[in-house]
Design a protein around this nucleic acid. Sequence first.
DNA 1: AATAATAATAGGAATTATTCTTAAAAAGGA
DNA 2: TCCTTTTTAAGAATAATTCCTATTATTATT
Lengths: 130, 130
Amino acid sequence: MPSARKYSRKREAIYNAICSSHSHPAAGTIYAQLKPEFPDLSLGTVYRNLSLFVNEGTIRCVCVVDGNERFDGDTSDHPHFVCNCCGCVSDLADDRLLMDTAAVESRNGITVSRTDLVFYGVCADCTNRT
Amino acid sequence: MPSARKYSRKREAIYNAICSSHSHPAAGTIYAQLKPEFPDLSLGTVYRNLSLFVNEGTIRCVCVVDGNERFDGDTSDHPHFVCNCCGCVSDLADDRLLMDTAAVESRNGITVSRTDLVFYGVCADCTNRT
DNA sequence: AATAATAATAGGAATTATTCTTAAAAAGGA
DNA sequence: TCCTTTTTAAGAATAATTCCTATTATTATT
């Protein structure tokens, strides 16, 4: 936790859960994961801390079409892939997909604070499994 | 309506509402827009027809972070821009942002059926208004 | 035009994700 | 330890969306 606040163990656990995961968990998933260790954890606390982290820029959120927000401890600009088959959300380590944001801004007369590139399709595992 | 079904006037109106709009309306927006003309229109009907169109590939949906799905009558692969200030969702006509999907597939061992590129920031209007 | 079969609809209940409120508990500092 | 501030649980409230069922509209068939 790189922030000025050090505070509660629950907040720390929520942060660690996101950063140690590569599955881009949703709020409910994090809640379910931490509940055994913190039986009095509430879903509200998870949501509150997640939006706190997002506002700080400590984590980022990824919007995928299945209707809920996913969270990512890797705040660098990188594309995501969503498998329509198993529903997994994964990072795409493909440098050729990184945008020249400054050029986009000047070409389109906008200011860009964030880029979301998401591919939908079928992942390698699901393709092989068929 | 390019589909095999021709059916109801409501369905047609929903389709036209999306295609004649450039604002990427949400389901509720379409409902509010058509309600005066069809006083007995129900929100369920709007949702049902929208997902029907999306499944057919007649329209597409765009996922933006304010928590609801937006719809777009332009099914071509093109990026979107969301203004954090006024909340508008607009198309970016910027050819240099189109992906070579086939290359992404082969480099990453995936099958891609759809690409979503969304920029978040401040639009030209909001920048000037300040 | 009448009829039958199919598809679409309204209305509302149910679900799911998320936010908000409030009083109580925990954290850190003096 | 005591005080102030922050965090929390619990659950109510909201919002977006889906699901269910009986009714109605549409098309195909006569």
